[in-house]
Nucleic acid binder design. Structure first.
Length: 452
DNA sequence: CTAGCCTTGACT
DNA sequence: AGTCAAGGCTAG
């Protein structure tokens, strides 16, 4: 089966192996195996200099600086830490500085290549099983022409923050370890394979990176709660009637969207994209990410009969369904089915963190400049998710089932988006915010151009 | 210091 | 002879 793959390696294959891979330290293009694994040329050189010259660095922050292509020069301490963390080998740097030849890692590189080939085949298998199990492909989202995501996607630092983005949000401490990112709404987390887990389940480095990008749930909760209270007060003082629960929900969704944009904007890999590509990706995925946020909260901390909101409040599902129209009702039911499916799979926070990136880095989005990069990020994410699901459950089927859930989420979000759009047009609720901007996308092309 | 390009040499 | 991961060199 794989017999000829090892010998007759075409140039094309090599591009797939090396050219498209991304450095696990900084995300730059990989140039080959260096000191134990595939890395870019610059991290290879950095690692060599550091070890050869026995350099000692110190971090002026909290030893958790972001290390990516644009910021790798900023903190050599954290860069070196990351080199070690992802598995670069000190022993591969030669004490005698002998040039050329081979070292003891040769066989390891060979095994790694074989493993990657195998993984690629597994991915293909999972993809094709997904295709055959889901006959109708998810309908494409309504045609967008652009929107003024400029509120969140301008270059760092934000010159003019979105009026709804609290000023502190861009200055959250970057050094939060996954352990502080607990979903502390409910007492018992379903599962957590943190790196400190003595059980020994290894978390792929990329997954650690994704978890680090996850926003702090508690901070978000208090921020959005405050915003909602503010709105309620505003209504109480300006008119006799209190604000409707619908408009509060819209504000909540709008705030969640802002946090999604903020999450993306500060995330590993995404930062490397041009603003125009960032906008296209977010434009294509916002409703999926929003839905995933609701669904994952429900799966991780929720209660069967109640919908858990970002504010920590719980709403009886029956209260919602009895007021919903037929379309909304079927959407809610499909959402519930998806939650149940994910509960059965015992999807965890690590997997949701991966899935968010999987959704965001969609290489099928039209007219992106950096499609190659987006493709390779998606491949890396799929690889990390596959590795994780294999190590935690030993069943390949679980990975395919997770992908199936993602696919269901995509089609459900597309339907929800259309539904909200029609509601939005007819009722003209919730104006002047990011949510309505997204829904009105086709009309606000001019705003999008402002950030070019 | 950084990072892209160059040279080397054991292994196939 | 070709491959490719070591170390080396050097502009910026």
């Amino acid at each position: 089966m794989f017999a000829d793959a090892t010998h007759s390696k075409t140039k094309n294959d090599e591009c797939l192996d090396v050219g498209l891979e991304l450095c696990p330290v900084c995300g730059d293009k990989v140039s080959g195996y260096h000191y134990g694994l595939l890395t870019c040329e610059s991290c290879k050189g950095f690692f060599k200099r550091t070890v050869q010259n026995n350099k000692k660095y110190t971090c002026v922050e909290h030893q958790a600086c972001t290390v990516d292509k644009t910021q790798r020069k900023r903190c050599p301490f954290c860069r070196f830490q990351k080199c070690l963390h992802v598995g670069m080998k000190l022993e591969a740097v030669r004490a005698d500085r002998m040039r050329g030849g081979r070292n003891m890692f040769g066989p390891m590189y060979k095994r790694d290549r074989a493993l990657k080939e195998q993984r690629k085949a597994l991915l293909q298998a999972a993809r094709s099983s997904l295709k055959s199990s889901l006959p109708p492909p998810p309908p494409p989202p309504p045609p967008h022409r652009g929107f003024s995501l400029s509120c969140g996607l301008q270059a760092d630092p934000l010159p003019q923050p979105h009026p709804l983005l609290p000023p502190s949000s861009s200055r959250l401490p970057q050094h939060q370890s996954p352990s502080v990112l607990d979903w502390s709404v409910k007492a018992e987390p379903r599962s957590s394979f943190t790196s400190s887990d003595p059980g020994g389940l290894r978390l792929p480095p990329l997954m650690m990176e994704f978890l680090r990008c996850d926003p702090d749930e508690l901070q978000l909760q208090s921020r959005i709660t405050a915003r909602l209270q503010q709105e309620q007060q505003r209504h109480a003082s300006s008119s006799s009637s209190s604000s409707s629960s619908c408009s509060l929900l819209c504000i909540m969704a709008d705030q969640m969207l802002c946090s999604i944009v903020e999450w993306a904007r500060t995330s590993f890999f995404f930062k490397q994209l041009q603003v125009s590509d960032q906008m296209k990706l977010l434009h294509h995925s916002w409703s999926q990410l929003l839905l995933l946020d609701v669904v994952s909260r429900q799966v991780l901390c929720g209660n069967e009969s109640r919908l858990l909101l970002i504010t920590g409040q719980e709403v009886e599902l029956s209260d919602i369904t009895c007021r919903a129209g037929p379309t909304a009702l079927s959407l809610i039911q499909r959402g519930q089915q998806l939650v149940e499916k994910l509960l059965k799979l015992k999807a965890d926070r690590q997997e949701f963190a991966c899935i968010k990136f999987l959704i965001l880095f969609n290489p099928d989005v039209e007219d992106v400049v950096d499609r190659g990069f987006i493709e390779s990020v998606q491949e890396q994410v799929e690889g990390a998710l596959l590795e994780y699901t294999l190590s935690s459950s030993q069943v390949l089927g679980r990975f395919a089932l997770l992908l199936q859930c993602v696919s269901e989420l995509q089609s459900l979000s597309s339907l929800t988006e259309s539904y909200l759009h029609s509601r939005h047009l007819s009722a003209r609720v919730c104006c002047n915010n990011l949510l309505s901007e997204m829904l009105h996308a086709r009309q606000s092309w001019t705003g999008a151009l402002a950030c070019a």
